[in-house]
Design a protein around this nucleic acid. Sequence first.
DNA 1: GCCAAATTCGAACGGCCGTAAGACTTCCCC
DNA 2: GGGGAAGTCTTACGGCCGTTCGAATTTGGC
Lengths: 222, 222
Amino acid sequence: MSPTTDAAASTEVEAAETEAATKNLVFVAAERLFALHGFQNVSVRDITAAAGVNLASVNYHFGSKDALLFDIFKRRTAELNRERAKMLHEANDRNTGSPPVREILAALLTPPLRWLAPDHERRISLQFLIRARSEGTDEIRQVLKTDVSHLRRFSDALLRARPDLSPEDVYWRLHFTLGMLHNNRFAEFDRLNVLSEGQTSESDVVALLERMLAFAEAGFKG
Amino acid sequence: MSPTTDAAASTEVEAAETEAATKNLVFVAAERLFALHGFQNVSVRDITAAAGVNLASVNYHFGSKDALLFDIFKRRTAELNRERAKMLHEANDRNTGSPPVREILAALLTPPLRWLAPDHERRISLQFLIRARSEGTDEIRQVLKTDVSHLRRFSDALLRARPDLSPEDVYWRLHFTLGMLHNNRFAEFDRLNVLSEGQTSESDVVALLERMLAFAEAGFKG
DNA sequence: GCCAAATTCGAACGGCCGTAAGACTTCCCC
DNA sequence: GGGGAAGTCTTACGGCCGTTCGAATTTGGC
């Protein structure tokens, strides 16, 4: 930012995320590059060049490249989980007793699929999260393995909705449902378009959510 | 192999794969390391050290590290697709008219899940394939996107089994089913064990196949 | 047993990487 | 407006990377 500290500059509408300027520039540029090309294929120099900041900024503001990745992962995961928890909570309020399976699954799948919409502000964040889940550092993988408190909310809810199922049944079906979700990166959509010879114009994420919900709910019905 | 060219050495049961000795050592070591640690995290030096061969072997026998990866990918993909095609063919023979959905899905899922068995010779190959699918080079991703002839066999079969479904329905549900499958790397199993607090002793792949088939079949029933 | 081709080997090259050190600038509070 | 903290900049270090080259060695046909 140029040294013009005019008071008029405060009229900019750039939302709340403006704590340290360059720290945020790095954060956003890194998230985008990681999401598009993968962690290992993006260098610190790529990030700082894209952000228009100095090379040393990453290590100054985040400590290391690994720590930067972990920072992005933690923040976006927290955001996504917050939206999911809110929807699950609302489903609980809407229903006396346990919500039906479909509403529980909707609370799990709707937030990430909303993010996936072409014009959504968090579209790149979801791509980042999906990638970080499989390509991330050992630290990230450790968190995914050990911190299951978030998922437990959903498995508990599903167990209450379907007390006839064994916990193992619920865990596996939840696992399958998440597999369906995590498979939705860009390339796969393309494959779909090739398979269907372009007959489908379904970049419409709402329709995709409906398909996924129907499939997963049927899987739980069995 | 030591220079003992005894005729008795031919009694070894090492199957067919013995064309160039070191070329195969490199192939096997690279597949294992790529599967366990990812393409980017394994150096040519790691591979040749694990294989017990000279550093230059990779470039001499395969041309480059990328070409080595692509070579492994091509061979293992062909093997897997061959087994799937065989099962689909047998399902066609078993049934007059079109095979039921379950048998088609079984032809798709059984081979990779068989490979996943703890003592199976191709266990590491499947981990490699799952990893290459998401972390591979642009060349691999290009093949996955454009070469859909293999998957088309299955979508065609499913369309014949369920002529009431639109092609789009079939494509998406097939996509979901593959997502369930591709999500089965090692780490995820661990998460399952944590979630279920160790109550499940289900490293049994047969039971996993049954669960996946039931879930996917139900998804297609809807 | 010889020769040419195929393979293996040791060594090194150029390049990009993450990170750190130190000088310099900006900001803010007293 | 002086001074210390916070941030930015330039520069470079050490290290690992994929690949290559020419020499040494092994192999296979005659």
